[in-house]
Amino acid sequence: MTAITDYEVRAADGGPATLDTWRGKVLLIVNTASKCGFTPQYEGLETLHRDLGERGFEVLAFPCNQFGAQEPGDAAEIANFCTLTYDVTFPVFAKIDVNGPEADPLFERLKADAPGVLGSRAIKWNFTKFLVDRQGRVVRRYAPTTKPEDIERDIVKLL
Rank of each mutant, 00 (worst) to 15 (best):
T2W: 03
T2K: 12
D6V: 04
A11I: 08
A11E: 09
K25P: 10
L27R: 11
I29E: 06
I29H: 09
T32M: 06
T32P: 04
C36D: 15
E43P: 06
G44P: 03
G44W: 01
T47P: 02
T47H: 07
L48N: 08
R50S: 10
D51L: 10
L52A: 06
G53R: 03
E54W: 00
R55I: 00
P63R: 13
P63L: 03
C64I: 09
Q66T: 07
F67S: 07
A69Q: 10
A69W: 05
A69Y: 09
A69H: 06
D74M: 03
E77K: 12
N80G: 13
Y86H: 15
V88Q: 03
T89K: 15
F93S: 14
D97M: 10
G100C: 15
A103L: 13
D113E: 15
A114M: 10
G119R: 08
G119A: 09
S120Q: 15
R121W: 00
A122G: 15
W125G: 10
N126H: 04
T128C: 14
K129C: 03
D133R: 07
Q135T: 11
R137N: 11
R140A: 05
R140H: 08
R141D: 01
Y142N: 11
P144Q: 11
P144D: 07
T145R: 14
P148I: 06
P148G: 04
I151G: 05
E152K: 08
D154E: 14
K157I: 05
